[in-house]
């Protein structure tokens, strides 16, 4: 009997099944290596660099690699910067809640109340389409909407509801919150709709036949099943809002300073070490938020 074997001697102890498994694994790792390498070099390494530079010595226009905690001390003793942390967390919390409150009923309508698949898809597409507009243009679009001579004030004055234009609408924390909610709410609507769409309508009908009120059905069936969607949406919204600076820069009239704005302005004045400190603080906050969320939901399973 002739044997066709190309195995190297060291492999002879392995069965064909193990060899195949080894080969498949090696192939998978080979395919994955370029991507992981890319991420390691261009994402992980820069992030390490941020942490490292946060301990460098800042002079007026340059940084030196002499290690010091001076930037950290300055950051943590400055009420302006600690205030930025507080502002970031406050804006994040409000926007997160706002996206859930504003988005959930819409998701409920599209995911559960619209039975027609075509209409359902059309509505979802309608929610997503604004994304094909430049993000910065969408932000700037709030200015003619909210300004003292903007659309809202114009309409309210026409209707005689107000006599003086409302000035708090633009260049305030309010305009930042409205802008962010509008931009990010879709990331909440999408995942929740997806989860609600998975609910078998017959389950709800059966519950209704058994005499359950909508309140009961919502509490017992709809809410629990949609929670993973809320969590996934919350992760999306959180990471985006926490890293924000453009909306605040263009709509707050410098009244709202997020950590992102601190980083941008520090880099603008070449205070690299200081920007790095703000970066590390931001990283810690985001990591904490994501870690918390991932404890509550397995992202890999939900996608």
């Amino acid at each position: 009997m002739t044997t066709l074997s190309t195995d190297t001697p060291s492999d002879t102890s392995l069965s064909p099944a193990q060899l195949r498994e080894k080969k498949d694994r090696r192939r998978a790792i080979t395919l994955l290596t370029p991507g992981l390498l890319w991420m390691a070099l261009f994402m992980v390494l820069p992030m390490i660099m941020v942490v490292y530079v946060s301990f460098w010595t800042q002079t007026t226009f340059t940084v030196e690699s002499t290690l010091t905690t001076a930037s950290w001390e300055r950051f943590l003793s400055s009420s302006t910067y600690l205030g930025a942390i507080w502002t970031t967390l406050r804006i994040w919390a409000i926007v997160l809640i706002a996206t859930i409150v504003v988005g959930y009923p819409v998701a409920l309508f599209i995911g559960l109340f619209v039975r027609n698949k075509t209409l359902q898809t059309a509505l979802l597409v309608a929610c997503v389409i604004p994304f094909w507009t430049s993000f910065l243009i969408r932000v700037i679009a709030w200015r003619p909407m909210l300004g003292t001579e903007g659309a809202i004030n114009a309409i309210l004055m026409q209707l005689g509801i107000i006599n003086e234009p409302l000035t708090f609408l633009l260049f305030s924390e309010f305009s930042v919150l409205v802008g962010m909610t509008q931009i990010y709410v879709v990331f909440m609507v999408g995942p929740i709709t997806f989860m609600l769409g998975r609910i078998d309508p017959s389950v709800i009908e059966a519950a209704r036949d058994l005499g359950a009120s909508f309140g009961t059905i919502f509490r017992r069936i709809i809410l629990p099943l949609s929670l993973p969607g809320v969590m996934v949406g919350a992760i999306f919204v959180s990471v985006m809002v926490l890293g924000e600076f453009a909306t605040a820069a263009s709509l707050s009239g410098r009244k709202v300073n997020l950590l992102g704005n601190i980083i941008v302005s520090q880099v603008g004045s070449l205070k690299w070490a200081f920007a790095a400190v703000a970066g590390v603080v931001l990283t810690i906050i985001i990591t904490a938020v994501i870690a918390l969320a991932l404890r509550l939901v397995d992202l890999r399973k939900e996608m």
């Binding site: 009997m1 002739t2 066709l4 074997s5 190309t6 069965s15 064909p16 099944a17």
Partner: peptide, 19 residues
């Protein structure tokens, strides 16, 4: 599509497992 843990598969006397 899969390989055996043990044993031999052959066609006309020539082993094909592992191929």
């Amino acid at each position: 599509f899969e390989e055996p843990d043990q044993g031999e598969i052959s066609i006309n006397g020539a082993r094909i497992d592992g191929q």
